[in-house]
Design a protein around this nucleic acid. Structure first.
Length: 576
RNA sequence: GCGUCUGUAGCUCAACCGGAUAGAGCAACGGCCUUCUAAGCCGUAGGUUGCAGGUUCGAUUCCUGCCAGGCGCACCA
């Protein structure tokens, strides 16, 4: 298929190499990886395969490259290939076949660049956000949410079945704190004078939940209830309220999940205990005492006996508790049960998007899955964990203090409402997840060069304006197949064509590395090429052939911008 | 102390699984709107890729050691 010229070229080179290396059984065929040279004199693609072979074959890279060229059978799209520099093979594509991509793009529209998922395609489970249902999401959650959602889009666009999943941490001590906090507010609302302990959640949303609970339930009945039962009831109501708020906030940035998975359900159904029993039967669990943690002052450390999982046998630094002092299961135990459940549900691949503050947790989960799953299936059960680094929120360069207690906590929702969904999403996608992200509220609102989202959207809006203009002037494009694209000869036009041609490859590479930010980088470069073209050439001219060809070109650019922004969850407006 | 991520132009970041002359935007300076959107374009200037070694024909990229910063380090999640 034309959709990926690169792969066809790589295959052709590989065939030539196999032929060439028949006389050298000891020499392994090196992987053929094509790159796109920065300099256009170096052709459309370049291969460096000859260089690593120089030592083995005891020939100069140039000589080897020449031999490869003599043996290779190129696909039709290739115009010429030659040896250059220290031994590169530079490949030039036929102009016609390049420009044909414009017709392909127009015909395939939103499908251009996409690979449809076959029935037996990889089933990916992508867990992201998973913010605790104890309060509103902050900006850091937002970054993880946007990264996870874009990655889900990207994987779905490159031939995978993707399930988006949110793991609700609706069990454990924090829920007790949440329920207790709401109950205190309820009593306060009922006229009691309450002193709030340090441990209680201070947010205004707690008061709101308290009000809602009071409206729906009789206070005196609650008061008369057994304390555990009362807190359980209030806790569940608070979780529901918080999850409703979180879903609402996620909806505001256009994120939807296929499944919200409750941690509590794992406890209720006995799955967590079953898992612990299974591990005990496997002999990887023992009762023991952990040494005090290093490098951190733990004033209340007590050498106490725990039920420990021997994760050190599977690559971890220290064994991990499965049960707390009071005998209830740890979060870790439930999380193993959760990942195991995903495995049982038949996913071929699991991806977890976590905040960097969970980095220390990766090894133990992977160790646990190694212990649970037969080696043959281990790769599918082993989660790929993407750690998203922190977001530093600033306003005009001044750090925004994030303190729950001081009430200066900035929620994701506030940021989205202030700067807009597209700006938030795009800004979160312009950096690699490994980099910490400085997010400036004022810069994100600016509609200029400092804000790449408008730069890309502006290119799309400009194209829409040109097409409106052409329509007003009565330009008729006619049959696409009749359009003569050979008139697109300028440097700017050819750059655009080459860039459009590279879109499917860009998606595949980004998906392969689980790096959705590359799609944003791609979109910015394409927009830059378009803006350059725009300033040098007019689309609507007296020359009808040229006008029609250029209209096809810019329609294709607009389509690919739309597709790329679509992966990122950003809109492509017709007017700005 | 251990683990992990980061360190590239004054600032924010790229650099396509080791490739050809390390690139963009902002900021600075100089140009471009009677013609399809100036939320734009063109140009100038700006670099010992944190430091020191190593591997390689070739290192921002891989390895080792330092330096600096972020995150994490039992019975929370």
């Amino acid at each position: 298929m034309e959709a990926c010229v690169k792969q066809a070229l790589e295959q052709a080179l590989e065939q030539a190499l196999i032929k060439l290396l028949q006389d050298h059984p000891d020499a392994a065929v090196p992987p053929v990886v094509l790159t796109r040279p920065k300099e256009k004199e170096h052709g459309d693609y370049a291969a460096n395969v000859a260089m690593p072979l120089a030592r083995v074959l005891k020939q100069s890279p140039q000589q080897i490259a020449a031999n490869i060229l003599a043996a290779v059978v190129w696909p039709d799209a290739v115009e010429a290939a030659d040896v250059a520099g220290p031994g590169f093979i530079n490949i030039r594509l036929k102009k016609a076949s390049e420009a044909n991509v414009l017709k392909t793009i127009i015909q395939q529209a939103e499908e251009y660049g996409r690979v449809a998922a076959a029935a037996d395609a990889t089933k990916v489970n992508l867990e992201f956000v998973s913010a605790n249902p104890t309060g509103p999401m902050h900006v850091g959650h937002g970054r993880g949410a946007v990264v996870g959602d874009a990655l889900a889009n990207l994987l779905a666009a490159t031939g995978n079945h993707v399930q988006r999943e949110y793991y609700i941490n609706d069990a454990g001590a924090q829920i007790g704190v949440l329920a207790g906090s709401v109950w205190l507010r309820m009593r306060e609302l009922n006229g009691e004078q309450i002193e709030f302990p340090e441990s209680a959640y201070p947010g205004e949303y707690i008061v709101q939940i308290a009000t809602e609970v009071l409206a729906a339930h009789d206070y005196k009945t609650l008061l008369a209830m057994d304390e555990d039962a009362r807190l359980a009831l209030i806790g569940q109501l608070a979780i529901d309220a918080n999850m409703a708020m979180i879903r609402d906030d996620l909806n505001a940035i256009g994120i939807h999940f296929d499944l919200y998975f409750s941690e509590q359900s794992l406890h209720n159904s006995g799955r967590v205990n079953e898992l612990i029993e299974r591990l005990q039967a496997d002999g990887v669990v023992y009762r023991g005492t952990l040494p005090p943690p290093k490098g951190k002052e733990v004033s209340d450390y007590q050498p106490v006996e725990h039920l420990l999982f021997r994760t050190t046998d599977f690559g971890d630094d220290v064994d991990r508790p499965l049960a707390k002092q009071d005998g209830t299961a740890t979060y870790f135990a439930a999380d193993i049960a959760y990942h195991y459940d995903k495995h049982l549900r038949g996913f071929d691949r699991m991806i977890d998007v976590w905040g960097a503050d969970h980095g220390g947790y990766v090894t133990r989960v992977q160790a646990a899955m190694k212990a649970l799953i037969e080696p043959e299936a281990a790769s599918a059960a082993q989660p790929d964990v993407i750690l998203v680094q922190m977001v530093n929120l600033t306003r005009d360069g001044v750090p925004v203090k994030m303190s729950k207690r001081a009430g200066t906590f900035v929620t994701l929702r506030e940021v989205v409402d202030e700067v807009g969904r597209d700006a938030v999403r795009f800004n979160f996608m312009t950096r690699r997840v490994e980099s910490q992200l400085d997010f400036d509220l004022e810069a994100a609102k600016k509609q200029n060069d400092e804000n790449p989202v408008y730069y890309v959207q502006y290119a799309h809006a400009r194209i829409a304006a040109i097409l409106r203009k052409a329509s007003d002037e009565g330009v008729v494009v006619g049959e696409i197949d009749d359009v003569d694209l050979s008139v697109l000869t300028s440097h700017e036009e050819q750059r655009l064509v080459a860039h459009l041609l590279a879109y499917p490859e860009a998606l595949l590479r980004a998906a392969d590395r689980l790096e959705a930010y590359r799609v944003a980088t791609y979109a910015m470069r394409l927009a830059a090429d378009f803006h350059s073209f725009y300033h040098k050439h007019r689309v609507v001219t007296d020359d009808n052939n040229l006008t029609v060809a250029r209209m096809l070109l810019i329609r294709a650019v607009a389509q690919v911008i739309t597709n790329a922004l679509g992966i990122l969850g950003v809109s492509a407006p017709d007017r700005m």
